[in-house]
Amino acid sequence: MKITDETIDYVSALAKLVLSQEEKEKAEVDLGNILGYIETMNELDTEGIEPMSHAFPLKNVFREDVVTNGDDRDNVLSNAPVKKDGSFVVPKTVE
């Protein structure tokens, strides 16, 4: 599969990555090779096969509706790169 600049730009935007020109060129080659190899799957006829997410057929795993947690703010915020007033902080998002 031939991977274009546009494809690399598109997937890197989805993954929130910026690549240098050199990285882009390498990614084009690598992704092309890898996806090309992946396409060998197409040799297989999978008509009528149900796609399988879980190899072991579990179902209906639930918890009961009970509050088990208390205030854990200090723990949850302990790794925040920036915090203020008990909140995580990001650059302005609200217009």
Binding site: K84, S87, F88, V89, V90
Partner: peptide, 14 residues
Amino acid sequence: LVHDPWDDCTLVDY
């Protein structure tokens, strides 16, 4: 998300 006018940033409350 709450805008913090003092620091011109956004506070995140989960």
